[in-house]
């Protein structure tokens, strides 16, 4: 976005004003996430910077909320639940979603638009509506307040993400590669494992990551259909925020921000790998 040489003085001025505005908006986007990180090291049980913290006095900082987090059986139990539910529902959603994406990207798929709209709908229907509906239905069939119930619900919510990412990957998949592999003497199994799978895997993995984070971050459905046994991390945070007793949730929040940074990096690497394998662009 260089300034063109014919720009007038007013335009130059506007250019810098525009950049300044953009910087402010970026601050609005990321600032809140950065504020929470130092706050989580607060030695006092407050949600704001203490004077000692502002003086950069080491006594103003402590790891007590992290210690609190890692020694609390409630939080650790919640993490365990989140991982159990997240991993199980991700596996289910990925297997079902990938199979469906393979079918959907076939040229002869009948009623593709309608089916696609149905498969995406769990992402569009407001969570509170899905949660209420699942609560009514799952209580009838004795799935409410059970692990399988929560896992099934999260699988349904994660499916659209898998379907979208995998169909996107498949649509850019060059089918002549399969014919090339065949003509070079590879049998179907070898073609699948040596040619198709490596090209499709990045898409499947990023779909799975989306599904996992959806489950890992989901509050509303768990709030309605889970019992105390299935208490997950977001539920623990939800009640922590409502009661606002201790900044432990700030420590948790910081850890989650780090987790999302990790996820984002992984996804970016996957995307680049996918592009490199397909020879689209050098990244």
């Amino acid at each position: 976005m260089a300034i063109p040489s014919y720009a007038t003085r007013g335009e130059r001025l506007w250019h810098y004003v525009f950049l300044g505005l953009c910087a402010l908006i970026f601050l609005f986007l990321v600032g809140p996430l950065l504020v929470i990180i130092p706050l989580s090291f607060n030695a006092e049980p407050y949600f704001t910077f203490s004077e000692a913290m502002l003086r950069l006095d080491p006594a103003g900082y402590s790891l007590r909320w992290y210690e609190d987090f890692f020694t609390s059986s409630e939080w650790l139990g919640a993490i365990k639940n989140s991982f159990i539910i997240g991993i199980a529902s991700t596996l289910l959603a990925t297997v079902l979603g990938t199979l469906a994406a393979l079918g959907l990207s076939s040229r002869h798929m009948p009623a593709r638009g309608a089916i696609m709209a149905l498969l995406i709908s769990p992402m569009i229907v407001p969570l509170i509506i899905s949660a209420a509906a699942m609560f009514f239905f799952f209580s009838k069939v004795n799935l409410a307040q059970t692990y399988p119930g929560v896992i099934l619900a999260h699988t349904a919510l994660g499916i659209p993400f898998v379907v979208i990412t995998v169909t996107a990957t498949l649509s850019s998949f060059d089918t002549t590669l399969i014919r090339a592999a065949h003509s070079l003497g590879a049998n179907p199994a070898r073609t699948f494992f040596k040619v198709v799978l490596p090209l499709v895997t990045p898409g499947v993995v990023s779909g799975a990551l989306f599904a996992f984070i959806t489950s890992f971050d989901e509050v509303v459905v768990v709030l309605f259909i889970a019992g105390p046994e299935q208490r997950t991390m977001p539920i623990q945070m939800w009640s922590g925020i409502r009661e606002q007793i201790s900044p432990t949730i700030l420590a948790v929040a910081t850890l989650l921000v780090l987790l999302s940074m990790l996820l984002l990096t992984t996804l970016e690497l996957l995307r680049r790998r996918g592009e490199r394998l397909r020879g689209v662009s050098p990244g």
């Binding site: 809140p32 996430l33 504020v35 929470i36 890992f216 971050d217 509050v219 977001p234 945070m237 939800w238 925020i241 949730i249 700030l250 929040a253 989650l256 921000v257 999302s260």
Partner: peptide, 9 residues
């Protein structure tokens, strides 16, 4: 980033 984290901030 988690929705709850952003709300907390």
């Amino acid at each position: 980033t988690s929705l709850l984290v952003r709300t907390t901030t």
